[in-house]
């Protein structure tokens, strides 16, 4: 790891301007979990880390808080830790997916440092990207080494030219919950739908999000819950203590008059971005919840999958994970 300077600036604008002036040399630090990993592995060598935790005042409070908004929604600050979010009892059960996603990520010690913003903006875990000896497409090389290499954990949906899976566990939840994100940039704050935060590799294979250099994620904004809104998050891992999911699913819906409505389905760790599944939504919107229709929807969701040589198993696995999430979101009993 190269020596670096830790810079504490008390305002969001000062922090932002400091990084925008020389984005190659400077970067923001929030929880620092992934950042320090990358620095220790020699993947990144910034000279300056700008401490987001040092930001005071109104912006700082917004970034550190969880609060109900005037329109009836909820705002989760980007500096809120995963542990705080997972343990925040006042957040209505309608938003359960994001709490469960936060509570099942990593370990208690990481969740106590890792932030919501950092979780959404962390870099991928692909072992070709993470190996300091190897130059992959994501690091400016010519090809995605996963294509011909060991791709057991790589994308089965939306891959190409890079086949990473998006590493954020909150990702599928924010997309399913139809959240927005607020970003601080040169012209002040702006709010965009969460799915526009994530950039597929066709746009630029070296990045995973759409923030301009020096822009800061300020908060995740959950819209007002629909009447009777339910949500669920589920995952499968090879290892139950501290592991990255093989697949995740987040579901939001209402069940009115015995049929599913307002359904949003998003899958995690299967694609380079949190993957909205319109195919599953089409099967289920207006249908009565049942194990059979969930199985059909899960099949539809993965019918567009294009697995690589070593990850075909993720297709049935992701189907299984989605089926669980659909059962949980609609409180439909699981088959024996």
């Amino acid at each position: 790891m190269n020596p670096f300077t830790l810079v504490r600036l008390p305002t969001l604008d000062a922090a932002r301007e400091r990084v925008s002036a020389e984005p190659q040399r400077r970067t923001f630090r929030a929880g620092g979990i992934d950042l320090l990993d990358r620095m220790k592995e020699g993947l990144d060598a910034p000279d300056e880390l700008i401490e987001l935790h040092a930001i005071a005042g109104e912006h700082g409070a917004r970034m550190r808080g969880i609060a109900a908004t005037e329109d009836g929604g909820w705002r989760i600050g980007a500096l809120v830790t995963l542990g705080q979010l997972a343990g925040y009892d006042d957040l209505p059960p309608a938003y359960g997916a994001i709490k469960d996603a936060a509570g099942n990520a990593a370990t208690p010690s990481i969740r106590n440092g890792a932030t919501v913003g950092g979780n959404l903006l962390q870099r991928p875990r692909c072992w070709y990207f993470r190996h300091s000896d190897l130059l992959c497409l994501k690091k400016g090389g010519y090809e995605c080494l996963a294509v011909s290499g060991d791709n057991r954990f790589n994308a089965i949906l939306g891959g190409g030219p890079s086949f990473i899976v998006h590493p954020s566990s909150l990702g599928s939840a924010v997309v399913a919950l139809d959240a927005k994100v607020t970003i601080a940039g040169e012209s002040g704050l702006r709010t965009i739908p969460a799915d526009q935060l994530f950039a597929p590799p066709t746009v630029d294979p070296t990045r995973e999000h759409t923030l301009a250099p020096g822009e800061v994620l300020v908060s995740v904004d959950l819209p007002p819950a629909l009447p009777g809104q339910r949500s669920a998050y589920h995952f499968a891992k090879e290892k139950q203590s501290q592991d990255w999911p093989l697949a995740e699913a987040s579901v939001r819906c209402t069940v009115e008059g015995g049929v599913i409505q307002d359904l949003r389905v998003a899958l995690g760790h299967v694609a380079p971005i949190p993957w909205r599944s319109k195919e599953a939504e089409d099967v289920l919107e207006g249908a009565a919840p049942s194990a059979e229709v969930f199985a059909k929807a899960a099949q539809a969701a993965l019918s567009v999958a294009e697995p690589l040589e070593g990850n075909a198993y993720k297709v049935p696995l992701a189907q299984g994970v989605l089926r669980y999430a659909l059962h949980f979101a609609t409180s439909t009993p699981l088959p024996a």
């Binding site: 499968a236 891992k237 090879e238 093989l246 696995l317 189907q319 299984g320 994970v321």
Partner: peptide, 9 residues
């Protein structure tokens, strides 16, 4: 064994 996900406990 969870036959939906293949996870063995």
């Amino acid at each position: 064994v969870d036959t939906w996900t293949g996870v063995v406990r």
